[in-house]
Write a protein that binds this DNA or RNA. Structure first.
Length: 803
DNA sequence: CAGTGAGCGAGCTTCCGCTTGACTT
């Protein structure tokens, strides 16, 4: 048996370290935290000094019992968890959970995983820092109290099952406020002017320095320019330099992988995890931009041998992000000499990005020369400018160029200027004045939101990706592609002595993969900002972090801090439950011209809806908003249109035919049969004729008959069909998947009936349009009855293992 | 892919941060 047990957080790390220590050491992993507050209970005794009651997390029971066995037999237990607040707490929880004898426990830390660093750590052990542990307990308890007291307020005042928290609520707020900025933004137009001058063997492009305010100014400028003489008045050349970006942290990796590779935040982390586990990169959840001496050396060698020593410049970067704890290195390749890796394409692409970024961070600045040529116009004091840029020494640009979120980065006016000299007369070819519009602020992408959160010090590298998915799971936020709208702009061209105007169109506001707050997200945010402004404050986390630091320094007792926070907070919670109005996001859109009644958009019991008639009106009518509509943006006309559907078109084969828009788009309904219609094919539920609807139904029946594998005369409502994902059974309205290994064509009626029965007994959870998850088909009566049954079954299941 | 939108009440939901697999679609 080994004399020494070393416990680290990550199994990949354990494997590496075991190789650096002798056979007297066995290295195991805790797989992160091993104890936490229970999931379904507050588990904080507020009266007894906020005493938290921890339990061993369900999926860590096996880990803990193995570690317990090993630690009992070991002479020394080395707690080598990360050197940050959470890492210190993990060590303390291990101490408690394994009931370790303090005398044989040593706490060690290291920032880089090299033989030298590990041995140095072993030579400098310390004890567990209880102040730092208490700072973590304060963080944990505060988050639990905030989350478990705020969420129930939402259940009472907005809708059940909603959630609120220090991190997620602020994340949603950021999106809600941006959305408001966008909708309040007043778009203004102006004119850009660009001149094209013929130099014989090249064209010189120069832009009017001043923006022109409207059509009249543009027109009069072009009239002045008509027949004017143009000449080079001045040429100015200035040296400039560009410096490389720091090596990757979690947040910057997510941003660059999003921009350059089109990865989502979660996808970046999954791919990086695989690279880490196979030993190709260092740890991927980090806020540090530090590189180890080993890595700096490796970069220097790689750069010198590939590009020459003049391309090398060793630099150490310092973090700019608030609250960085820097327990790890920056994200880098473990071996700089490995330029390419084997593996999946996405792993290769991400590795390439990391390799280039790391190498570039240790390379020389790029040296540029920027030239600005000024063009004088004889008939006005206005001047035009031509700008060029020449790279004198490429430096780090040889391997890596950071991308930017700015969409209009390249205006076609960079690169080298053609040869010109001061005083030279220019032959004007044409001058074009183009109408432009001021840009609305852009919506956040996932990675841009992470960047913003990081700047505010909110959230940690390990939680950025989960936070983004939580706010989407709660229906506060949706990530989607939105179509732009067409916009007209004017182009005035002066050419060969005459001015010619034309109208052009462009698409504006189209956005792909951006985050949008939903109605429920907006209503919840407004409610929280109104009632809990301090928690929703962008500075809240930064303020409590300062106090956690004071606790970690041993200058403040954590219970004292908690008391100061909790007492007023809890009072506000109680008061809000008592006095706050239900939040519905109600907005009056106008008056229904047909009835003279008010038209109101609000959140109803089942989601966003339109109501015609006041709440005391007995004849009031309702309609649900479609998924692509929102309370904030819907117009009176669009709202009234919702009441025109479903349209009854007539009767076909004895059953009614109607048209409407459902969750999956516009459809024709015939009895209980649905057939989608596509606007692309010219069909629209508002205008489609009965004859066309019947054609659609017949086409669908034909397509289905072509995919038919099997059916039985005795059961006309059951069919075996070929679907997009393989064969399936169609029975009534629900489809049943055919299990693997079964030949669809060989199924007997008995087997099919069994499969259908089984599927009915175990319905797969369906996600409704209105957010709630229901195991039953969405019959209101069925869910009402099913709910208590489900709860009872769950209770029974909970109790039974104890017996 | 319906129409539902009021209220009752039991029993449920919920936080953040540290780690991986084991799952399904």
């Amino acid at each position: 048996m080994s004399k020494n047990l070393v416990i680290v957080e990550s199994p990949a790390k354990a494997k590496t370290i075991e190789g650096y220590l002798g056979k007297d050491f066995v290295v195991k992993s805790s797989y992160g935290h091993v104890r936490d507050l229970p999931k379904n209970d507050l588990a904080i005794n507020v009266e007894r000094g906020f005493l938290p009651v921890y339990e061993i997390t369900e999926d860590k029971k096996a880990v803990v019992s193995e570690l317990k066995k090993l630690s009992d037999k070991a002479e020394v237990v080395w707690l080598a968890t990360d050197e940050d607040r959470e890492g210190e707490a993990i060590s303390w929880h291990l101490l408690e959970a394994l009931k370790l004898d303090v005398k044989k426990v040593k706490r060690i830390v290291f920032h880089e995983i090299t033989k030298k660093a590990i041995h140095k750590a072993i030579e400098n052990p310390r004890t567990v820092d209880i102040d730092l542990v208490n700072a973590q307990q304060a963080r944990r308890v505060l988050d639990r109290l905030v989350g478990f007291e705020l969420s129930p307020v939402l259940w009472k005042k907005v809708r059940p099952s909603l959630s609120a928290g220090r991190v997620q609520s602020v994340a949603v707020r950021i999106l809600v406020e941006r959305e408001r900025e966008i909708s309040h933004f007043k778009v203004a137009s102006f004119y850009n002017v660009r001149g094209f001058f013929d130099l014989g063997n090249a064209i010189l492009k120069a832009d009017l320095v001043r923006k022109l305010k409207d059509h009249e100014e543009a027109q009069s400028f072009l009239e002045k320019a008509n027949g004017a003489a143009f000449s080079i008045k001045d040429i100015e050349t200035k040296p400039a330099k560009r410096t490389p970006a720091a090596p990757f942290t979690t947040s910057t990796l997510q941003q660059e992988a999003g921009r350059k590779l089109g990865f989502s935040v979660a996808q970046t982390m999954t791919v990086a995890q695989r690279l880490y586990e196979s030993g190709k990169i260092t740890y991927m959840r980090t806020d540090s931009v530090n590189l180890s001496d080993f890595a700096l050396d490796a970069c220097k060698n790689e750069i010198s041998s590939s590009y020459g020593p003049n391309y090398s410049k060793t630099r150490q970067y310092t973090t700019k992000s608030k609250g960085a704890q820097e327990a790890h290195e920056a994200i880098r390749p473990t071996e700089m000499s490995v330029r390419e890796i084997s593996g999946e394409r996405n792993e290769q692409r991400l590795y390439d990005l990391i390799w280039k970024r790391t190498l570039a961070s240790q390379m020389a600045d790029a040296e540029l020369e920027k030239t600005t040529a000024t063009v004088a116009i004889s008939t006005t004091d206005d001047v035009m400018q031509a700008k060029g840029e020449v790279i004198r020494f490429d430096g780090f640009l040889k391997v890596y160029m950071e991308s930017s979120d700015d969409e209009e980065a390249d205006d076609g006016n960079s690169g080298m200027l053609p040869p010109i000299k001061v005083g030279q007369n220019l032959d004007m070819q044409e001058i074009v004045a183009t109408q432009r519009y001021t840009q609305k602020p852009s919506r956040y992408s996932e990675a841009a939101l992470v960047k913003k959160l990081e700047e505010l010090g909110i959230g940690r590298p390990s939680t950025y990706a989960p936070t983004i998915s939580t706010v989407q799971k709660r229906d506060y936020v949706v990530k989607e592609e939105r179509q732009g709208t067409e916009r007209v702009y004017e182009v005035l061209t002066l050419k060969k002595g005459s001015i010619h105007g034309e109208s052009k169109t462009e698409i504006t506001g189209a956005e792909k993969g951006k985050l949008y707050p939903t109605d429920i997200g907006i209503v919840v945010t407004d409610f929280l900002v109104e009632n809990f402004p301090n928690i929703l404050d962008y500075q809240f986390t930064a303020k409590v972090e300062e106090e956690f630091d004071t606790i970690a320094e041993g200058k403040l007792e954590w219970q004292e801090m908690m008391k100061r926070f909790y007492n007023p907070f809890h009072k506000t919670v109680a008061q809000t439950i008592e006095t706050a109005q239900r939040a519905t996001g109600e907005r009056e859109l106008g008056t229904d011209p047909a009835s003279g009644k008010p038209v109101i958009a609000r959140i109803g019991r089942f989601g966003p809806m339109i109501q015609i008639g006041a709440s005391d009106d007995e004849a009031k009518r309702f309609a649900s908003l479609r998924a692509d509509q929102s309370i904030g943006n819907i117009t009176l006309e669009e709202a009234l249109k919702l009441f025109e559907l479903p349209r009854t078109l007539g009767e076909y084969e004895g059953k009614p035919v109607s048209a409407a828009i459902g969750r999956f788009g516009p459809y024709i309904k015939h009895g209980s049969v649905f057939a989608s219609i596509k606007p692309k094919e010219g069909d629209d539920p508002y205008t489609i004729t009965f004859e066309r609807a019947v054609e659609v139904l017949q086409a669908k029946a034909l397509a289905e008959s072509q995919r038919l594998i099997k059916q039985w005369e005795s059961h006309p409502d059951i069919q075996v069909l070929n679907g997009r994902f393989g064969p399936y059974i169609k029975s009534g309205k629900d489809n049943v998947k055919i299990p693997k290994g079964k030949e669809a064509a060989a199924l007997t009626l008995e087997e099919v009936l069994d499969l259908v029965k089984e599927a009915e007994a175990n319905p797969s959870p369906k996600r409704g349009r209105f957010g709630k998850k229901t195991a039953e088909p969405t019959k209101a009566a069925a869910t009402k009855k099913a709910a208590p049954k489900k709860a009872a079954a769950k209770k029974a299941a909970k109790k039974s293992p104890k017996k």
